[in-house]
Amino acid sequence: MAEMHDLVAAYALDALDPEEEFAFEAHLETCPSCQAELALLRGGAADLAGSVATRPPAHLKERVMAATEPEVVPIQLARARRPTGWLLGVAAAAALIVGGVWAATSGGEEDLVAAVLEATDAQTIDLETANGSVRFVYSTSLEAGVFDGERLDSVGSEELYQLWLIGADAVPESAGVFEPGDREVLVEGIETGLALAMTVELAPGVGAPTSDPLFVAEL
């Protein structure tokens, strides 16, 4: 594709017609030589940009920081109801808990998962997060909940999801870690008035959250 290769510089300068640009981008996907060339030439273009560098007015930074303030994730609650469908259906499956607070060793844990799902006071919270929908079923009488992260997006290979419980002191305490796809993450220590939150963290989890929560739900 010698012809396409000739277009790298013009592409690096955003100087292709729309049709050519479209064709070139398709070619670029499959051409390591053009990718390498483009990296070099874009470096040259960035140097050019440096020749006109001009400090922006100071107020612009505030605007930029405000415009990128991490979004508040609206939490949509289902009415409390008995769990149905995707969570209840897997009540017998083994809890998949990776690393973190609890090791999935005892049969007692599975029993607790099943008990929570069948508890008469079980409440269900369905949440839409930026990374997918989740469900949390909990029972205050059993002081435990079961978190379903099956529908969450995958995260980086070094990352996992971490749950947090936040009490009156507003300090998040780790409630365990799990990987996307895990359907039955047991969360113990549930009581009314706590909030449950979730972040993405580096494996094997952290002592305090380092990123914004994907949701926070009061229990």
Binding site: V72, V73, P74, I75, L77, I125, I166, A170, V171, P172, A195, L202, V206, G207, A208, P209, T210, D212, P213, V216, A217, E218, L219
Partner: peptide, 24 residues
């Protein structure tokens, strides 16, 4: 019951947690 929003005081606290080894 659930919060509709990540309330500001909570968020501020979240960012001010002293023990943040990764950030440190």
């Amino acid at each position: 019951m659930a919060t509709a929003l990540w309330t500001r005081p909570l968020r501020a606290h979240w960012f001010n947690v002293e023990a943040r080894p990764a950030i440190a």
